[in-house]
Write a protein that binds this DNA or RNA. Structure first.
Lengths: 242, 242
DNA sequence: CGACGCTTTGACCCGTTTCAACAATGGTGG
DNA sequence: CCACCATTGTTGAAACGGGTCAAAGCGTCG
């Protein structure tokens, strides 16, 4: 039990809220699940689907996106280990967007029934899950701000700050470095910019010695300067200690 | 009881989910509240606040917004009667954004304790509230798509489609007309455009005979054409009948 | 070694912003 | 009931951020 993949979820719940009671922790760890390795760029859930299970990220990066009739793809969120990107499918039957892997990933599928039983048996856990979805919404709000009010340079800086803080909260950073398998094309789809302009802006961030970013590893050279450039204020992430 | 302002909330819950059982409906209508008339452009909750009550819109338009350090204002959502824009404050103590009136409005304040008691006593209502917040999140996602992937013309068209459908669901439209007290400056703050360009795009929508919009009333002249121009697909609103 | 995916570059173009007025509109008080 | 003022809406011209297109470099992995 100590090394169950579900510990990722426990750690996440405790990062956003307060510590879990032993009984609560056990109830979470007792959730039945099936593990699955998924290759990169593979849709886990598609727009229009009616899932009967939720997907917990154990390892790797996922994202949610919507396609427009004109072929444009808009990524609306990135997801790192410990998160349940399609928790909403418990209450919103039909998916209004797709969920896909960015990198080769390990995910745990948990049946809706099991989630519902957990929520009923442990209402406090239910509250925490609800809270997770509200933090999700807070991040969406900040993304609206990002695409609506920041220029390209700040937009990309902001995305990197967000990823860094999210990963740090679940212990997936080493110093100011973190594994970041996201391509510039995906950054473009997430920020509403062209890949060409993303590339130039990333080079500018590098040139200003704010970041290093190559071969899937991003290192923040000057966090304060990066956050200033991004107008980043971490409160919206609603992390317990910061 | 029949004409309690809380009927707005009942109607809203039934628009998004299925019909309420009599006992559930009663429990909602028994919520203690205090009514308040609020003038236009008045902050109901500010960024950084820790509210102890929720705000139910009875009459008028509200919006949520975030300010950036550089003075930019980004509106992240509009709210019409029947909605509880700060329901999240039940679980996220500190506001990461502000809530303000667009027009003179009537709102009902409901204490967090009362909301919590209702949710515990009527878990099904709790589920519906959770669902409301998830629909909120779905709308945020669509706004990310809007600012990220659509041009000015489509962006504004999309906003109008959304308002129309939301208002229609709670019975606040007359034909294809609805009261829309939003100014072009507010549309600009919501879409990430300049007021000048909003103005030109609105004129284009008028010129193409898709809408009429003056003196606080918006009439959609050709809903199909407007939705096509906006690439609008109403599923994300998760309304019961459409 | 070759192929594929990702990054990088240059040149040109266009949607949108900015600035700076000016015109309507509507609410207020005398 | 009209004069006044503050919002809101409208216009034109010039500048700019970012988009588009097309091609070339570069890593990595079979």
């Amino acid at each position: 039990m100590l090394h169950s993949p579900l510990n990722r979820l426990v750690r996440k719940l405790e990062a956003d809220g307060r510590e879990l009671a032993p009984a609560e922790k056990e109830a979470v760890l007792r959730l039945p699940f099936t593990l699955k390795e998924v290759r990169a760029d593979h849709d886990i859930v598609r727009q229009g689907d009616r899932p009967t299970q939720c997907c917990l990220v154990i390892d790797g990066f996922l994202c949610r996106y919507k396609m427009l009739p004109d072929g444009e793809r808009q990524i609306v969120s990135f997801h790192v280990p410990g998160e349940i990107p399609d928790l909403q499918s418990l209450f919103l039957g039909k998916m209004d967007h797709a969920l896909t892997t960015i990198s080769p990933s390990t995910v745990a599928f948990i049946a809706h029934e099991a989630m519902n039983a957990l929520i009923e048996g442990q209402p406090k856990i239910g509250r925490l899950f609800w809270r997770e979805t509200l933090i999700d919404a807070a991040i969406f709000r900040e993304w609206i701000v990002n695409t609506g009010s920041r220029d390209a340079y700040a937009r990309i800086a902001h995305l990197l700050c967000e990823l860094f803080h999210k990963l740090q909260a679940v212990g997936l950073t080493k110093g100011t470095s973190f594994g970041c398998p996201i391509t510039q094309t995906e950054v473009a789809d997430a920020t509403g910019l062209s890949t060409v302009h993303v590339n130039r802006s990333v080079q500018e961030l590098r040139g200003n010695r704010l970041i290093e970013w190559e071969r899937g590893t991003c290192t923040i050279l000057d966090l304060q300067a990066l956050e200033d450039a991004a107008m980043f204020e971490p409160e919206y992430l609603h992390l317990a200690h910061g």
